[in-house]
Structures are given as C-alpha cells and as structure tokens.
C-alpha cells in the first residue's frame, strides 16, 4: 500500500468537503474492496476518509411503507434484518449468496455498490486496461478483449477489433442485482446537495468512458438505499451459477420477483448479474411474461429478449447459453415454489 493520510470526519458535510477537495481522496467503509485494491496498487489514494462513525448504520421504515437501508449497515446485518427477511427475502438471499460470512460482516451496503470489477487485468497494473489507465495507472488498451475473458461481459460491452478502446468487464455485485429487480433508489449527498438515483441509472455501461463505473459525481457520498413497498415476498428466486458452490463470484446470476394471480403472472422483474458492466434488466422482456402461465415455452421468448444482442469474446461464449437456461429455471422456480437460492 502507498502511504496516505487518514481522517475521520465528524459530519457528512465535512466528509463531502474532504472528498470533493482532492481527486485522490477515497472514502473507506468496510474496506474489503478498497484495501484489497490498494494492496495491488490499483488504488493509490493520498487520503482515506473513514466514514464509519457517521450516522448511516440503521435500517428504518419509510412513511410510504418502504424500507431505508443505511449505507453503513453491513451486508450481514441487512440480510438478517427481520423486515428485510420478511418483506424482501430476495434481497436477503441474494446478499447471503455473496462473499463469505467474514466479508459480509464488514462489507457495507454503500461500499457494495461501489465495488469494482474483478477483471484480472484490471487488478494487474502491468497489463493494458482502459478502466485503470485513466487514473494514470498502467498502459491503456484492453487485455481482456483478446485475452482470457471467461468471467467477462456478454452484453452492453464496448468493443472494437483491436481492443484499443474496449472494456468487457462485469460489475460483480450480487446485492445490486436484487436491488435492481426491486427498483431500489440510491440516496446521495454531494457538493451540490442531495439527489436520488434509481438503481437502473446508478451503474453504467462502459461506453467511451470505461473508467466510470457509475453515475455518481466526484464528492458524492451514498447515505442510504431505499426499497419501495413491493418486495415480491411470495414468488422470488436468486440463482447464482459459479465455479464452486460458495465463496465465489457469479459467472451468471438471475434475480426474479413475480406477482401471481393463481397460475397467471401479474407482474415480473428479472435482473441478471455477471453478464454486463451493470445489473441487466429489460422491461420489454418482463412485459412478455404478463398474463402468461409459466412453462419453458412461455419463458423462452423472455430469455431471448433479455439476451438480445449478447456476444461472447471466446472464453466466455458459454455464458450466453448458461444465462438463457438460468433465466428459464429461475422464473419457473419463482412461480412454482417460493424459490430459495441454489
């Protein structure tokens, strides 16, 4: 790790000031992603701002019936919170499918949103990487484009034939996949005040700026994540396909929430993880399920629509078929038995 100054601001206002004051300042919450990246010299902050004493460590009911998850509540405390378990079991199960118990005890809800890609070339400062090069840290280009890209994205990528401006990284969070399916809203405070960012707009595709993972502006701090009232507690599933059955990132994951009227689908939410630079959702695809009874035949067009335009880069070609099958299985499971995690 490089040397850095350490501060513990007493208020949110001080935090925003310190953060906005230098492009080399970073917030530290649980530290489980940032310290790892600092050990690899991928992150080299001049200052760490420890926000752990700020008052964002509670889960509170909202007047409209939703739930506000403080940015500093740990992933473990969120997953095991009685109201989350009751009303948003999809979120609870999804969080518990990620990382390890030790990591979930430290990882915070805010930090989870900002966790960076696990692209191995991003982690290796000697390799060309457009995401890392923008911070003056190693050569530009995209080593993954023509390299070993088994864990990489199949949707929404930036690619060109020589990889010069490409990024085919995925955003690796499990939690965010459920938050996207649930239409959660991220609460942010920055130098220009407060704003709310719907999950669908929080993360971004790499586009021409692969170094930007999300749409927050410099100096902005996440204070909370709000869950709307509808939690799909009766019909939900999170399927996470990975190389070992625990303590591994998703190759492909699917979060599903359904509302059923007998055998007929009244509303459907489907979000994918492990396939793109952000959790992947398409309302056109979800619409195709409304009014249908569930069978592989009725779900297949939905999977086709969600995966329209998918392409592999060699080592990750398998993800297209894998995602297709995982979607069908997850939707079926949600409708038939109140599915738990696989």
């Amino acid at each position: 790790m490089n040397p850095f100054a350490y501060s513990r601001p007493a208020s949110l206002a001080d935090t925003v000031n310190e953060l906005a004051g230098s492009s080399r300042s970073r917030i530290i919450a649980g530290g489980t992603n940032l310290i790892d990246l600092m050990k690899e010299n991928v992150e080299r902050p001049a200052q760490l701002i420890d926000i752990n004493r700020l008052p964002f460590s509670t889960i509170d009911e909202l007047p409209d019936g939703g739930l506000r998850l403080g940015a500093l509540v740990t992933n473990a405390d969120t997953a095991y919170h009685p109201l989350v378990e009751q009303r948003y079991p999809l979120l609870s199960q999804t969080i518990l499918a990620g990382a390890s118990p030790q990591l979930r005890n430290m990882a915070t809800n805010g930090g989870n949103l900002f966790q960076r890609t696990r692209c191995y070339y991003f982690y290796d400062t000697s390799m060309p990487c457009n995401k890392r090069a923008a911070t003056n840290n190693g050569p530009g280009g995209c080593a993954a484009y023509g390299g070993y890209n088994r864990i990489h994205a199949i949707l929404g990528t930036t690619d060109d034939t020589n990889g010069q401006s490409s990024c085919v990284a995925t955003y690796p969070s499990d939690m965010a996949v459920a938050l996207t399916a649930l239409d959660a809203v991220v609460q942010v405070t920055g130098p220009n005040g407060d704003r709310s960012i719907p999950m669908a707009d929080f993360h971004r595709l790499p586009g021409a700026e692969p170094w930007r993972d999300n749409t927050t502006q410099p100096g902005e701090v996440v204070t909370a994540i709000d869950l709307p009232t509808r939690g799909f507690p009766d019909h939900y599933t999170y399927i996470k396909v990975r190389d070992r059955s625990s303590y591994a990132f998703a190759l492909v994951s699917v979060a599903v929430g359904l509302e059923m009227d007998g055998d007929v689908v009244r509303d459907a939410r489907i979000a994918l993880g492990g396939v793109a630079h952000k959790p992947w959702r398409k309302s056109e695809a979800e619409q195709l399920l409304i009014g249908k009874t569930l069978s592989p035949e009725t779900i297949r067009p939905v999977a086709d629509a969600l995966l329209a335009g998918a392409r592999g880069y060699g080592h990750n070609d398998f993800k297209i078929e894998l995602a297709h099958r995982a979607i069908i299985r997850a939707v079926l499971k949600s409708g038939l038995d109140n599915g738990a995690v696989e």
Binding site: I28, G30, G31, T32, I35, D36, N52, M106
Partner: peptide
C-alpha cells in the same frame, strides 16, 4: 472478520 482487509486505526 478478516483482519487482512481492515486497518488497525479503524
């Protein structure tokens, strides 16, 4: 917790 991913000062 994992002691390797947290700072003593915290």
């Amino acid at each position: 917790v994992n002691a390797c991913l947290t700072l003593a000062v915290m």
